[in-house]
């Protein structure tokens, strides 16, 4: 078991590492100098790629191989997407999709 000081040090390292990953791009490419063309290209090309990655990331705990094979999550995802294509209302799509997932889980899917 760690001492309290060691626990606080562990938390401080987690914090410092996180701060480093958040500040590094801004520290390297300052406002005062023009940003290199390749980095500007990445800034434009990355967001769509990252959102795709985050969708996969947020569903990483779904067990595709076991139980109901993630039926509740995938059905709820389909509802979210279709509803959004139809009404294009972010809050509505998220609310109904999540309610759908909770309901299906409650029904044992």
């Amino acid at each position: 078991m760690m001492t309290t000081a060691q626990q606080l040090a562990t938390i401080a390292i987690c914090s410092a590492g996180t701060v480093l990953t958040r500040f590094l791009p801004f520290a390297v490419f300052s406002e005062k100098r023009p940003t290199p063309a390749f980095i500007r290209y990445l800034g434009k090309a990355l967001p769509s790629a990252v959102f795709g990655m985050l969708v996969v990331y947020s569903l990483r705990d779904v067990r595709i191989m076991e139980g109901s094979h993630g039926a509740a999550e995938f059905a709820a995802l389909a509802v979210t997407v279709l509803l959004h294509l139809w009404r294009r209302n972010m809050m509505l799509s998220m609310f109904v999709g999540t309610a759908c997932c909770m309901l299906l889980k409650r029904l044992g899917l």
Binding site: F51, V55, M90, T98
Partner: peptide, 11 residues
């Protein structure tokens, strides 16, 4: 699931 729904909608 609300987090996944949000990322999906933003995507």
């Amino acid at each position: 699931f609300v987090v996944a729904a949000m990322f999906a909608v933003i995507f």
